[in-house]
Structures are given as C-alpha cells and as structure tokens.
Amino acid sequence: MAQAALKSKLEADVEIQASPQQFHHTFVSYKLRDVQHTCSDKIQGVDLQQGEWGKVGSIINWTYVHEGETKVAKDVIEAMDPDKHLITFRMIEGDLLKEHKSISLSFQASPMSGGSGSIVHLTLEYERLHDGIAHPESLQQFLVDLTKDIDAHLPQPN
C-alpha cells in the first residue's frame, strides 16, 4: 500500500501562441538544440548522444538549471506521435534519479478551441524512492516556464 503512494503524476496545461505543429517540431527536430539559446537561463546544453532527433529510442543529454543548481539528465525518447503532437521522454540517468526511481515527461500540444494557438498538456510521472522526498512541484513549474519560453521564440501567427 505504501509503495503505491510513492508513484505520482503532476499535470499542467499551458496556453501558447504557436501552433501544435510548431511546438512539437521543436522537440522532434535538430531545433531542440536551439532551446539552450532561447532559454539559456534554464537550459545550458542539449546534445544528441545516440539515434536521431525525434526518433523513439534516441538518447538526449541535458544540462539545465533547476532551483539555482546546474543539473544533468539523460533521457530516452520513449514515445512519439506526430499526429497527436506528443513526445514522451524517460530519464535513464541524472540528478533527479538520486531521489526518484523513475521519471517520465510528456508534452502534448493541441489546437486551442475557438482561436489560434495551442494548449500544451504537460504530464510528469514519477516514483519517489521514499516518503521523505518531496513531490517535484518546482520541476513542474520549471517545465511550465520552459514551455512559455520556447513559445516566445517561435514564429507567431499573423
């Protein structure tokens, strides 16, 4: 029973101006490398270690600043659905795995009803190593802010 309580999910919806295609394309193309230039206060490096940009099974190394500290992560692209503008990353190495058994993150962009722009649905699924570890709400906020920063650097609809 206690084990189940260690598995949790945080979700958030972020309104952006970009189309679902534009936002999704950032994550599935070599443009992901540009995130470090557009969000340098948060992302310091994005490197493809293995595979191809946007392909399931590819491995990406991240260097990022969270809660004032430089951290690293190695993620595998676990799932991708271009029709649904969905990409899921699963962390396989990194600082967050010192306190978590598993972490996965999904971004799914959908058209906003009744207008231009999109809603990006963020899903952060994780399993803490024990009850003494806080839920990663600050990581969720980091991802919300990152989504907004990426949007601010994408071409806006006319």
Rank of each mutant, 00 (worst) to 15 (best):
L48N: 13
K84C: 02
S106N: 06
L48S: 10
K55H: 12
I59N: 01
A109M: 05
E69H: 13
V65I: 13
G114A: 06
T70L: 05
Q108C: 07
P111F: 03
K84G: 04
K74G: 01
M80H: 06
Q50D: 12
R90N: 04
Q108T: 14
H85T: 03
P111M: 01
G54H: 06
V72T: 15
V65C: 11
D95T: 13
E67K: 14
D47H: 04
I92V: 15
I77P: 00
W62P: 12
M91W: 00
Q50A: 07
V76P: 00
E93V: 03
I60G: 00
L105W: 04
A79C: 01
K101L: 09
L48R: 10
V76L: 00
E52R: 13
Q50I: 07
V65Y: 02
S58M: 03
V65N: 11
T70F: 00
M112S: 15
I103H: 09
F107S: 05
T88F: 00
A79G: 06
I59Q: 12
I92S: 01
K101D: 15
Q108N: 10
E69Q: 15
D83A: 14
G51V: 03
L96S: 06
R90H: 10
N61T: 03
D95W: 03
S58N: 06
G51W: 06
M112H: 13
L97E: 05
M91K: 02
I59V: 15
P82F: 06
H100L: 14
